[in-house]
Amino acid sequence: MALAQENVLIPDVGLRVKALESLLAEKGAIDPKSLDLLVEAFETRIGPKNGAKVIAKAWVDPEYKKWLMKDGTAAIKSLGYSGVQGENMVVIENTPTVHNVVVCTLCSCYPWPTLGLPPIWFKSAPYRARVVIEPRAVLREFGLEIADDVEVRVWDSTAELRYLVMPMRPAGTENFNEAQLAELVTRDSMIGTGLALAPGK
């Protein structure tokens, strides 16, 4: 039985990755230099700061927000964020009566162009198994206590739509500009396991 099919972890998995990469390069299927470029893109440019800029713009610009809610993909692309795992974007808005939280129970679908690569907990069995059946308990572990009369909406990304939560704009930020607001928008607040930060925190 081949190594990768055994009912245990692959031994020296990093070396098997290296084995596959070297074979694919020799056979002309990949260019290792283009792989370097890709790693650099994820380490430097693709991350939740992108999503934070989208949210901050929507907070200050009602026309942009309208567009973002209607056609998330196009509105997000207009700021330069598009492509792999962000091909079809839907933005869902938190309000005083609705709290949204996103999961992918079947794998780990996540909007890469706006949030980067998912954290391990998002891909983990406990989060994927539990947040659909006991979202309030999971959110409590993240420090969020959701009142009984607030509706919790759990979005399971079962298809090719990718969801970005628009958290509520924190109180006391009336005089903040877009860049200052973006600083308050955390990754977790755009997944729904957190809120935007209060100013000064």
Partner: peptide
């Protein structure tokens, strides 16, 4: 077509579901 379909938490989970909550899934 793919649609977002909404379920009440109690339709899916019975009494284990919170009466206020909903689940959204994308379905072909």
């Amino acid at each position: 077509h793919v649609y977002t379909v909404t379920f009440t938490a109690q339709e899916v989970w019975g009494e284990a579901g919170h009466p206020s909550d909903r689940l959204y899934a994308d379905i072909w």
